[in-house]
Amino acid sequence: MTHFFHFIICFFLVIFQTTVMPYFPMFDRFYDLLFPFIIFLSLFRPLRESIPVILFFGFVMDTLSGGPFGLYLTTYLWLFVGVKWMTTFLDVSDSVLLLFVVAAGVLIQNLIFIAAITISSPLTLPFSQVMNTIAVQLIWATFTGPFLLLFFNYSHNKWDKWISQLFVKT
């Protein structure tokens, strides 16, 4: 059931960011919406729940994107591992750090993407353009990322409660 919840959320996020968001110019340089979800998995969910979701939706995003195949999968896995590692010595889930964790993740994703682009076709990205895109994504991530994280956590708790009640009744 938890996997079903994760699947529904990720599916909605993928559809939303590939079909609805491109129609709004203000979201032209929005960050990957799956990122907060991956961070949510790292912070609040166990490994066995998270890995299948990350592998599946990393694959889905790689299929939809024009980047080198495996790029999204790699980014998601590294993000998951990185945040998990961070939580071993930092209480990220209950502090001001939550404000910056999504932004930091977005920055890492951008750096990986830029590295991939630079390797595949050097000298195609002007520095100003790169900086501008990263800055816009970081701003979006800083202001919306924590809310998304909290929303995922809240809805997951609600879902768990609802499922447990449903099974108790039946």
Binding site: T18, D28, R29, D32, L33, G67, N110
Partner: peptide, 14 residues
């Protein structure tokens, strides 16, 4: 056209 690449770095459509 039914979908677009979500990343600003890669430009593809479905």
């Amino acid at each position: 056209v039914i979908g677009k690449d979500p990343s600003p770095w890669f430009k593809t459509i479905i």
